[in-house]
């Protein structure tokens, strides 16, 4: 993955996370930000977040994959790996 592609995914993930979880302006989202710990998302919040990530990036995030996604980095890697897989 090029730096530019990764940066673009980070920007899109950050935008979705910020909107769905209504992240306060003074909280900086980085690749190491944990959705559950740093942003205090509960299970219902995470379901909503995954729905919007599915809409943003297409496809479906199965439940067994969803449980492995905690940091922004996890999400970016997941999206990229899925994009790299052949149809």
């Amino acid at each position: 993955m090029t730096e530019a592609v990764r940066a673009e995914i980070l920007e899109r993930v950050t935008r979705v996370v910020t909107e769905v979880l209504q992240v306060e302006d003074d909280i900086e989202i980085t690749e190491n930000t944990s959705i559950s710990k740093d942003l205090k998302a509960d299970s219902v919040d995470i379901v909503s977040l995954l729905m919007d990530l599915e809409d943003e990036f297409g496809g479906e995030i199965p439940e067994e994959d969803a449980t492995k996604l905690d940091t922004i980095n996890d999400i970016i890697n997941y999206i990229q790996e899925r994009a790299d897989q052949p149809e």
Binding site: E19, V20, L21, Q22, V44, D45, S48, D52
Partner: peptide, 8 residues
């Protein structure tokens, strides 16, 4: 309404 309310 925010995004979460509209979804849920």
């Amino acid at each position: 309404f925010n995004r979460m309310e509209i979804m849920q």
